[in-house]
Simulated assay, not measured.
Amino acid sequence: MGLLATKPVETPLPQNHRLGDATGPLFSDPACYRRLIGRLLYLTLTRPDITYPIHVLSQFMLAPCQAHYEVAIRVLRYLKSHPGQGILLRADCDLQLYAYCDSDWASYPMSRRSVSGYFVFLGSSPVSWKSKKETIVARSSAEPVRVCCDNQVALHIASNPVFHERTKYIDIDCHFVCELLGTGIITTAHINTHLQLAVIFTKALGTSQFSLLLDKLCVYDPQPPP
């Protein structure tokens, strides 16, 4: 990209960005923007630290604005600050899976859809992560709903696990997860917001919090630049 002499930055995405409702001029060479984002998508396979920024920027492949291109260049400037950074797969592993999930409710200003993200460890080694815009609009993240239904069997099934044998037409995945929760193979736990590792996949963070989470996610640069 001809940016070898550019000044590096410490975070790939500016905090409190407004890329979703950017109204500036369109970028003059959208094909160049698409090629750049396409290349950066491959890098997210080993660089979870740029997963959320690339997820955001890939929303504007059809008609990117100048502001979108400038932020894409910022990602390159961030990569220059830590060119060898990647995930660390440790030799000492307890072979247990640990997962973190987070959601940024209604964060897309144009559609008010939420962004969800997750991060999975095998022992202390990162093995899977994702940032995704939800396909529907969520009215609330924790709002009680009263549902009226004329099917008494469905109502009994929802309130009484004894009727689970009648639920063959309900999604199998739901029951699979419920069984794992019942046997203790999967357990759930509340975590403080400041310790939520998956937040790095749902929103742009400041330098201090971003660096702290990268360390906890086992993302390192074995040979940092001087």
Results as ranks from 00 to 15, higher is better:
Gly117Lys: 11
Pro48Ala: 02
Phe60Asp: 00
Ser131Pro: 11
Tyr98Thr: 13
His68Val: 06
Gly182Met: 10
Leu19Gln: 09
Thr193Ile: 08
Leu195Ala: 13
Ser128Trp: 05
Pro83Gly: 08
Thr11Gly: 04
His82Lys: 09
Thr6Phe: 12
Thr23Met: 05
Pro222Val: 10
Tyr108Ala: 10
Thr183Asn: 11
Val137Thr: 14
Ser131Tyr: 04
Ala91Trp: 02
Ser28Trp: 00
Leu214Gly: 15
Pro222Gln: 06
Tyr100Ile: 08
Phe121Tyr: 11
Pro109Asp: 07
Tyr52Asn: 02
Ala67Met: 04
Phe163Pro: 04
Lys7Val: 04
Tyr100Ser: 06
Pro48His: 01
Ser208Trp: 01
Ser131Ile: 00
Val75Gln: 02
Tyr169Ala: 13
Val153Met: 14
Pro224Phe: 10
Tyr52Arg: 00
Ser28Cys: 05
Ile54Ala: 02
Gln96Pro: 01
Gly20Phe: 10
Glu165Asp: 11
Lys168Cys: 07
Thr167Ile: 10
Asn151Ala: 11
Lys7Phe: 03
Leu212Gln: 13
Val145Gln: 12
Pro222Phe: 07
Leu88Trp: 06
Pro224His: 08
Leu195Gly: 02
Leu217Val: 09
Pro64Cys: 11
Ala204His: 06
Asn192Tyr: 08
Pro12Ala: 06
Phe163Asp: 09
Leu41Asp: 01
Gln209Met: 10
Gln223Met: 07
Leu181Asn: 08
Thr51Arg: 12
Ala67Lys: 02
Gln96Met: 11
Tyr33Thr: 04
Leu45Arg: 01
Asn192Asp: 13
Gln152Pro: 00
Gly84Phe: 05
Tyr52Gly: 03
Tyr98Lys: 15
Glu143Trp: 01
Leu40Pro: 07
Asp104Ile: 09
Ala22Val: 00
Arg139Ser: 13
Val75Pro: 06
Ser211Ile: 04
Leu88Ile: 12
Val120Tyr: 03
Asn192Ile: 00
His68Glu: 02
Cys218Phe: 04
Gln152His: 10
Cys149Asn: 09
Ser141Pro: 05
Ala189Ser: 15
Ser131Glu: 03
Leu19Glu: 00
Tyr220Leu: 13
Leu13Met: 15
Ala72Tyr: 01
Thr202Arg: 02
Ser211Asn: 14
Lys203Asn: 06
Val162Asp: 13
